[in-house]
Design a protein around this nucleic acid. Structure first.
Lengths: 190, 190
DNA sequence: AGTCTTAGCTATTGACGTTAGCCTGAAAGC
DNA sequence: GCTTTCAGGCTAACGTCAATAGCTAAGACT
């Protein structure tokens, strides 16, 4: 048999491509195997079953998003950094509509890599907010507010939740500026 | 055979219970049939397959959430109404962690009932914002901002996305007041 | 009682994930 | 350059699940 030259990485990246094309439920070992020109059981030489494959994809997705945000924030601070991060966040999600929901999943407790990359992802946001002098619980609340707003918009958008034919770019921009305004006067704790 | 006395409604509500218990992927015709003490093919007398069952559950979920929000807003207006809606929104989601994501899905284009109940859901929010004198695109942007923030928080929370052991109630309250503050000074369009 | 409708059943098929075990060709060692 | 190893592919088989076809008996109606 001519070897197909699979690797764990190639299987995972093919799976990721499939998820972005056909959605989360479009991922099956059968589909991956067919795309790679291989029989289904062969995949088990590189990946430990479907759930493990999903976890692998999740990790690479989180890593990719995390890098995108990190790059966007590079060399900027405060409002500038937040604006850049917001744009990068939405852009990544639109480029990866299938992967995006997986990137928001809580890390699998047994998967060290997942935990690591998940905390790295939150840290990008957290460190930008440090530029506002926020500390402790204030910083946590603010991070949650920012994450919630961005995630909520992007999640509803990629899920088709915004029905009206009104400019989404503008809505997102107003959301971003509103959040930034709020964060600039955040420290009045209840 | 003793009749089990199934109806479309009983099948759907059993499915809904299963989804809240075991998550979205925990729904299978096999599981529903077993819970109802019936063989799988019997379900087809009441429900047109698994996808149709899911759509049925989605509709009832949206209806339930919509009613909860409507009740919360009843007899209140502006900041009062928004606060009440926010609390009701999160409470509903926490009570129905499995159903909640389905309630956020875009309505199925062929399912008239789904479209109706989806628009009803958005309308609750939309009408409260009318109390702020917002109109046209401003109102749309504001609705999206509100929906995004609430949904984002609740979605991350029920998905386990907030790892830190810091009071979620307080974070949510600060989010709510921040959003309300923003909406009170919304009309400065770019 | 006799008839009709229909809610439930069994049987079957097809898709998929998973495991066990074989086989071969490519790289490693002499 | 020949042998040996071994891992990356394979076929075969099984279990689970969704779905369809067709049977049967429970219950409603006259």
């Amino acid at each position: 048999m001519a070897r197909a030259g699979l690797t764990t990485e190639s299987v995972i990246s093919e799976a990721a491509r499939l998820i972005d094309e056909r959605g989360l439920d479009g991922l099956s070992l059968a589909a991956v195997a067919e795309k790679l020109g291989v029989r289904v059981p062969s995949l088990y030489k590189h990946v430990d079953g479907l759930p493990a494959l999903r976890r692998g994809v999740t990790v690479t997705a989180k890593k990719s998003l995390s890098e995108a945000l990190g790059n966007a924030a590079l060399g900027r601070s405060r409002d500038d950094a937040l604006t850049a991060i917001s744009l990068a966040y939405r852009a990544w999600a639109r480029a990866h509509p299938g992967l995006y929901p997986m990137a928001m999943l809580a890390p699998h407790p047994d998967e060290a890599a997942d935990i690591a990359v998940s905390t790295a992802l939150v840290d990008v946001v957290f460190r930008v907010l440090a530029g506002y002098g926020l500390e402790g619980d204030d910083a946590v609340d603010a991070t949650r507010f920012l994450r919630a707003s961005l995630h909520g918009f992007v999640s509803l958008e990629t899920g088709g939740g915004f029905a009206l034919p009104v400019d989404l770019d503008r809505s997102y921009q107003r959301l971003t500026t509103s959040v930034i305004t709020a964060l600039n006067t955040w420290t009045a704790s209840p």
